[in-house]
Design a protein around this nucleic acid. Sequence first.
RNA 1: GCCGGAGUGGCGGAAUUGGUAGACGCAAGGGACUUAAAAUCCCUCGUUCCAAAAGAGCGUGCCGGUUCAAAUCCGGCCUCCGGCACCA
Length: 853
Amino acid sequence: MLVFFLRFQEVVDLEERYNAQRIELKWQRYWAEKGIYKTDLDPSKKKFYCLEMFPYPSGEIHMGHVRNYAIGDVIARYKRMRGYNVLHPMGWDAFGLPAENAAIKHAVHPSEWTYKNIDYMKKQLNRIGLSYDWEREVTTCNPEYYKWNQWFFLKMLEKGLAYRKYSYVNWCPSCATVLANEQVIDEKCWRCDSIVIQKKLEQWFFKITHYAEELLQGCNELMGWPERVVLMQKNWIGKGEGVEVYFPIVGMDGQLKIFTTRPDTLFGVTFMCIAPGHPMSEKLIKDIDKLETIKAKYGREDEKIGLFTGYYAVNPLNGNKVPVYIANFVLMEYGTGAIMSVPAHDQRDFEFAKKYDLPVKVVIVPEHDSRGCPPTHPSPSRGEGKGGGEALDAQLTEAYEDEGILVDSGQFTGLRSDIARQHIIKFIEEKGLGKAVVNFKLRDWGISRQRYWGTPIPIIYCDRCGIVPVPEKDLPVILPEDVKITGKGGSPLLESEEFLKVQCPKCGDNARRETDTMDTFVDSSWYFIRYCFRKGDIDLNSELRTPDSEVDYWMPIDQYIGGVEHAVLHLLYSRFFTKVIRDLGLLNAGEPFQNLLTQGMVIKDGAKMSKSKGNVVDPNYLIEEYGADTSRLFSLFAAPPEKDLEWSDKGVEGVYRFLNRIWGIVYKNKFKIQNSKFKINKAFSLQSSALGLYRKTHQTIKRVTTDIERQYHFNTAIAGLMELMNEITSFDPKSNEDWAIFKFAIEKLLILLCPFSPHIAEELWEGIGNEPSILEQKWPDWDEEAAKEEKIELVIQINGKLRSKIMISPGVPDDEIKKMALNDQKIKEIVGAKVIKKVIVVRGKLVNIVIGE
RNA sequence: GCCGGAGUGGCGGAAUUGGUAGACGCAAGGGACUUAAAAUCCCUCGUUCCAAAAGAGCGUGCCGGUUCAAAUCCGGCCUCCGGCACCA
């Protein structure tokens, strides 16, 4: 009796009430002790690298994180149950400005602040029950990590992919640092919203433009990415194919080099414009003050201003002399910094021409005018500048920017734009008047930041030797701890004598270190490679000589999950780094992310959750109140992952109720389930209700599996679980067979629930007498035969309108179905004496009877 | 302005290739249990006509088209969201 009692106690320790706190902590401890999420290289298994964007350790996890990581965790757990060797790591994007702000505000060192946050947030992540292999944890502010940032920098320097130049840079006065183009949003700082100004500084750059073409071509391989993200990348890279044309300047040596994508409009040039920062501008303009007024409004979109230089350029195609202007809207950074202006066919030039009363000359007319007639071709005999276009010139109220037929264009007159372009480019190249070129909007990536809390750039400045890279053996260049962070004037590193003073590695003389640190996007551009190694020191140098290393086992990432806000920034930089790393010989893959899932925002009261709007939901509160399983389940159920998720307190209660119902029914029937030893085989005669549940279980396995496989539609998968639960609730088992079916349904429900809400699944799995862990269960297969309905509902339509429904067995032949439909009592009444024109039978679905009046 | 995406009940959302529109959940209404409430369980729940039921009509942003059949395909609009924006 005693023996029985002990056994009894051991197996059945389910409490009557679902206590999320208790069981979640219990299983989290169990998983940690067992090291169940540790991953090792295993060439016998198919690998799956599942990665969520790592967080900035701001202090606490918010709902956006919960959603992001819940999505990733379901995928990782699902793939693990499907037998994949899953790599699912987590880390910290730990460098960045908030740590410095905290240092100023609270007089705490950025390092201390950051590590404290990491500590706390790690506890929070574990409390959510996420299946990370923490042995691979990456913390980017750790010298063991950023040493390799510096190593990459040196390698890129060697290959000419890192360089230093003076340039106008985006400067955020509030952050007192430089920003990359991608980090400027609506002329404001991406981080603090201050208006960004232009400042001339000497900076370090990564030559991302070297890979512009490959990054663009690679876009076509990103089959597993959302189309819009690929498109955003393509637009950002912005390839423009065109031609450079040289315009001689009258009374001066040298030529004005312009870039255009519309050489078909070359005969319509009536003036030229150059950027105020163009090297030519100071030669052409003697009045420096006037030039400065243009410079002051450089790049401003509200008005176009220009200044006539007094010089004329010669159109190499027709010999026309046209005036040369300095104009604020011409960008130095794109093309050659100089343009030919064709006001008739470019809206910007048109506006400028109207303002400064410059001539407009039409050289393209629509292929068919508004009445659909072909255009009247001007006779070439009428001569240059007096062609048929002239009458149109005065009428124009805006530029005609479309393609069409060339008029007034010398030997090219009468050709279509696209044909004319080819001919003109060929002509220009043959005569040496210019050449075909490709331009990209993508600029090189400026990585210097005048901040403290970042990776020191491993460079030394020596008066004698100039710019000297820190020798590899001296890496890492450690960020000094004893600095004062005031937030005022320049980098705090300038104040650290100890850091600043160094001996030149070449000549041994006194020299000084670079005080700028790297943009933190450098850190996140390769962290996914670092995860491929187990914890501890890594040596990428030795990896260079290891073909088919761990990196090649794991890379590329099979599924990457994060917010769309990184569509260009982080994702583009990471693609660039991956190509650099590949070319260093460290990696075979050329693209880092096979599949990308961009999850939507978490919304409350119609707006993104933010402290300033006061609409944040604290995950801590949620977990205390309902537990991690409910929190996870809600964020997966309320919307498909790629869509925004509208927060709903009531919705949370809904899924909590669902888990409670599962708990309740398992608790109530635990002995019956435990004691059910009956084996299900197809032969035994089931009551129809038991058969119904058996069928529903197989249907649910199928549904949940396909919903997960099909674009991770967790919301409908969970709806499927709820349906199965509803069916279990209404099933009333009586016989041994019934209980076997009941047990079968419950066990499958728990296994299917496990990736979504793992704690409750574990507890109930154990509670019905199974060995932990449910995580080690195989994902179930469904039996297509068992999932099939024995009767299906056949819809009968008349003229496309639903008129009747009958139950039929599947597999009834079409003409039989047709007969049954026509014999249906209701159908007979409606059809009456009317003529049946046609009957369409859709197998297993419906019959549509088309009748006349 | 250009390029994307989306418009479905009171709400979040479902409908895999054109084939029963509204799965699942929330809210609401009614009922059971209870001295009562909470919790739980059961029923109803797009809309109009009808006292109600039966039944019929209408209904996936708007207008038109293709088709036996359209939330789904095509054309034209409207609205909202996102990205880019003097890139020559």
